[in-house]
Simulated assay, not measured.
Amino acid sequence: MPTANASVVDRENLRAGVDAALARHVADLRETARVISADAAPLADAVESMLAGGKRLRAAFCYWSWRAHGGTPGDGREEPVLRAGAALELFQAAALFHDDVMDDSSTRRGLPTAHHVFADHHRATGRRGAARRFGDGAAILLGDLALVASDDAMSRAVAGLPEPVAQAAHSVFEVMRTEVTIGQYLDLVAQTMPWGDPQDDERRARDVVRAKSARYSVEHPIVLGAALAGADEDAIAGCRAVGLPLGEAFQLRDDLLGVLGDPSTTGKPTGDDLREGKRTVLVARALARATAMGDRAAVDALTRGVGDPALDAEGVATLTDLLVRTGAVAEVEQLIDELCTEAFAQIEAQNWPEPARGTLIALAHAAVQRAA
Rank of each mutant, 00 (worst) to 15 (best):
Q350C: 11
I336K: 09
V299K: 05
T181E: 02
H98A: 07
R11F: 01
V9A: 06
G76L: 04
Q346E: 13
R275I: 02
A60G: 09
A153C: 07
R77D: 12
P221H: 07
D187V: 03
F61V: 13
S49F: 01
I236C: 01
V218A: 05
E248F: 08
R128H: 10
E219C: 15
A235E: 01
A364V: 06
A290K: 07
V208P: 05
A59N: 06
K268L: 02
E163Q: 15
T320N: 01
V47L: 14
R109H: 12
A226L: 15
P162R: 06
A68Q: 11
R123M: 05
P245H: 11
A237F: 00
L57H: 11
C239F: 05
Q350P: 00
R56W: 05
L51N: 03
R285A: 12
T266Y: 03
W352C: 02
A16Q: 04
E202W: 09
A284L: 13
P353F: 12
V316Q: 08
S7F: 02
L161P: 01
E342I: 01
R285M: 06
M102Q: 12
A21L: 03
E12Q: 14
M176F: 07
A46I: 00
R123H: 06
A292M: 10
A157I: 00
E219D: 15
A87F: 03
R77M: 11
Q334V: 02
A60T: 10
Q350M: 11
R34D: 13
R24C: 01
A364L: 09
A286Y: 09
L335R: 15
A214F: 05
L145K: 06
E31C: 02
V148T: 15
E333L: 12
L319G: 03
D262S: 12
V81K: 13
D104A: 11
E314P: 00
L257S: 06
G143W: 01
A124C: 03
A313L: 05
R77L: 08
R357P: 01
T326Y: 05
L43I: 15
I361C: 09
Q369W: 11
K55I: 04
A231N: 10
V329Q: 14
V189A: 14
A84W: 05
P194I: 01
R325V: 06
V218N: 09
G160N: 12
P80G: 10
E342N: 02
S105L: 04
A362F: 07
K278L: 06
I336T: 08
G74K: 09
P245C: 06
R67H: 10
R83E: 08
L14Q: 08
T280P: 02
E31M: 09
I336V: 15
A362R: 13
K212L: 08
A330T: 14
A301E: 11
R285F: 02
V8I: 13
